[in-house]
């Protein structure tokens, strides 16, 4: 049977973007999406800051809400010291959020569905927060792996567990985002491809039957919108939590 096949993973394949110039420097289609996300963020800021009104308009309200949301997240999770990391957390949060949201549009590339991307972000957060820990506490930061109030004979068992759980942070952080985004996009593609298969196999009857996968995809769209926001939030709040551990050690 020579018909359409479901190519669920083709949407993730990398090509070069920005024409021949991009090809020369290996600027990929995922980087195009990143550039788009960054451009949207900067454009929203530019729009929101156009009037700097005392009573904000729509664009300004949006930017102010984002600002206060992330700022409160930093202060509530890390404490007052968290304001130092606020620009960093905001950059990561807005970048992932826009990457997730733009990735939901047809023909857009969801760069957060690439493990290389999410692992790099997660490793950066891991290395950065560990660096903050050693910068703030010096070698005393190693005490972080020694839980307080535990009998000494248990320590040889607990310290390795603490270290392993600490080292697994970037893995869980990156895989969570990557898996959520990939799963959503794969399901979308599978159901959409299924519609083509049905129509190709059963003609008009199949086209009518395609309403089922279509409605599933509509429901999935709502779910994916939630996931896009939620996963960006989870990534940001875990970044804050790791920074809190680094600053306060508990």
């Amino acid at each position: 049977m020579a018909g359409p096949t479901i190519d669920a993973l083709g949407q993730f394949s990398l090509t070069t973007g920005l024409g021949s110039l991009g090809r020369a420097v290996n600027f990929t289609n995922s980087n195009e999406a990143m550039l788009g996300a960054a451009a949207v963020i900067v454009a929203v800021f530019a729009l929101g800051l156009k009037s700097k009104a005392l009573v904000p308009g729509r664009a300004q309200s949006l930017v102010e809400m984002l600002y206060e949301f992330v700022r409160n997240m930093c202060v509530d999770t890390i404490g007052e010291e968290g304001l130092r990391f606020f620009p960093l957390v905001f950059t990561i949060f807005s970048f992932i959020l826009l990457g997730n949201l733009l990735g939901l549009f047809p023909y857009f590339f969801a760069f957060t569905s690439h493990i290389a991307v999410t692992l790099t972000l997660a490793l950066f957060v891991f290395v950065f927060s560990t660096g903050v820990g050693f910068y703030t506490h010096g070698f005393k930061f190693l005490k972080f792996f020694v839980p307080s109030g535990v009998p000494t004979w248990l320590l040889p068992l607990l310290v390795p567990i603490e270290i392993i759980s600490y080292l697994s942070r970037p893995v869980s952080l990156s895989v969570r985002l990557f898996a959520n985004m990939t799963a959503g996009h794969v399901m979308w593609e599978v159901f959409a491809g299924f519609m083509l298969l049905l129509t190709a196999s059963f003609g008009v009857l199949g086209a009518f039957a395609s309403v089922v996968p279509l409605s599933l995809n509509v429901a999935l769209a709502a779910l994916e919108l939630l996931v896009a926001g939620l996963q960006a939030y989870v990534f940001a709040i875990l970044t804050c939590l790791y920074l809190h551990d680094a600053v306060h050690m508990h």
Partner: peptide, 12 residues
Amino acid sequence: LTLDQVGWMAVI
């Protein structure tokens, strides 16, 4: 391209 996108991401 898999790793090159990371470099460009860092720049962006």
